[in-house]
Structure formats: structure tokens, C-alpha cells
């Protein structure tokens, strides 16, 4: 494994651009900063807002979106278990979010061709986190709050402050694809 690269979210301005352009599929990353959870239901709502020309509940430019629906926080902890969910279900929404400035998404499993093309076109990254390691990943979350759509329960958008969140670059902005290296069928 390569030495992890430390990066900070959101990936804004020229510093963010430089990170996106420099990382390659297969690189290990430790991410610190602010990220936003969103999974199936939250994506549907975001999509509807953007389509209607309304603002998103958080700044999309430079944002890092984490496909995650955490367990409730037990007393004394910022969050419960918080690992990634499978990404392909969010494929239909990713290109529009990229077009609005989202610079990275975090999930598990491969992305479809439309997302791989969109990553290249809009200069963005797709990271993988280890699925089923929700307790371990939660240890990197320092603060969490529900930011939008509280009625969605576990599917609400949470704002997370993370430190050294361990990730692997799956798809880079140059068209590199870590799953492609294994020549396996990429869609279920």
C-alpha cells in the first residue's frame, strides 16, 4: 500500500483542484474536514431541488458527499456506526451533482459508465471506504449534526466533521479505475 495522502474537505479553490488533479486510482487517502452524508432518499430530494432551480441545503461547490446512513448516536458519542453504503444506487444522481460542483463522493463498490464519464468531464473523484467497518470509521467522526431532511431519519443529510478518515481512490479525474484493473463485471 502506498503512503496515505492527507487531504482536507471541502475541496475548494485551487488547493482543491490541485488535490483532484494529483490523486490517482489506487492512492490511499486520509481525509479531514467537513463532509455530508446522503443516500437514496436524500439524493431524490436533492435532485428535485436542483431540477427546480432551488438551492441545495449545503454548499455543493467543492463538497464531498458520503453515501452513508449512520446508526443513531448513543449517549456520549457524536455518531453511531457510520460505514459506506453501495454507490451504484446513486449513479443516476451523480452527474448532476458533479455539474453543481461536488468534487468527490465516498461509497463502496464500482460506478457505472455515466459516472466514470462525469468524473472526467467535471474533474471529480470517487473514493471507496471499507464496507462493514462502521464502528472503525465512526471513530474518525468528531462531530455530527442533522443538516437537512430530518424526517428521513437515518437517510437525513448529516454534516460530519472527520479526521483522518481512511479512503482509497477508486476513480480519478483522469479516467483511472481501480475496479477496472480486475476486469470484473462492474454492474450488478
Amino acid at each position: 500500500m502506498s503512503r496515505p495522502v492527507k487531504i482536507t474537505a471541502p475541496l475548494q479553490g485551487s488547493a482543491g483542484e490541485q488535490i483532484v488533479e494529483s490523486l490517482r486510482a489506487g492512492d490511499s487517502v486520509l481525509l479531514s474536514g467537513v463532509i455530508y452524508t446522503a443516500r437514496d432518499a436524500a439524493h431524490q430530494r436533492l435532485f428535485r431541488l436542483l431540477r427546480a432551480g432551488e438551492p441545495a441545503p449545503f454548499e455543493l461547490r467543492g463538497a464531498v458527499i458520503y453515501y452513508c446512513g449512520p446508526t443513531p448516536a448513543p449517549p456520549g458519542r457524536p455518531i453511531g456506526s457510520a460505514g459506506p453504503t453501495t454507490s451504484y444506487r446513486m449513479d443516476a444522481f451523480a452527474p448532476l451533482l458533479h455539474a453543481h460542483g461536488v468534487k468527490a463522493t465516498i461509497g463502496k463498490g464500482p460506478r457505472g459508465q455515466e459516472v466514470r464519464d462525469s468524473l472526467r468531464e467535471h474533474r471529480a473523484l470517487y473514493f471507496g471506504a471499507t464496507g462493514g467497518a462502521g464502528a472503525l470509521l465512526a471513530a474518525c467522526v468528531q462531530e455530527a449534526r442533522v443538516l437537512a431532511f430530518p424526517d428521513l431519519g437515518p437517510e437525513a443529510i448529516h454534516e460530519l466533521k472527520v479526521e483522518d478518515f481512511p479512503l482509497l481512490v477508486i476513480n480519478d479525474a483522469q479516467g483511472g479505475d481501480l475496479f477496472g484493473l480486475f476486469e470484473l463485471g462492474s454492474r450488478p
Binding site: S81, T130, G132, G134
Partner: peptide, 21 residues
């Protein structure tokens, strides 16, 4: 290695092993 660490941590801290319970 991460999965084994995760299992140990979940037991120690009384956290769910995975967020999808």
C-alpha cells in the same frame, strides 16, 4: 485487517458492527 479491528472495536465500545443493522 480493518474488518478484524472493526469487530474488536464494536465489542469494546458496544457499537453496531455495521451501520446497516
Amino acid at each position: 485487517g480493518q474488518l478484524l479491528q472493526n469487530a474488536a472495536l464494536a465489542g469494546e465500545k458496544d457499537l453496531p458492527l455495521c451501520q446497516d443493522t
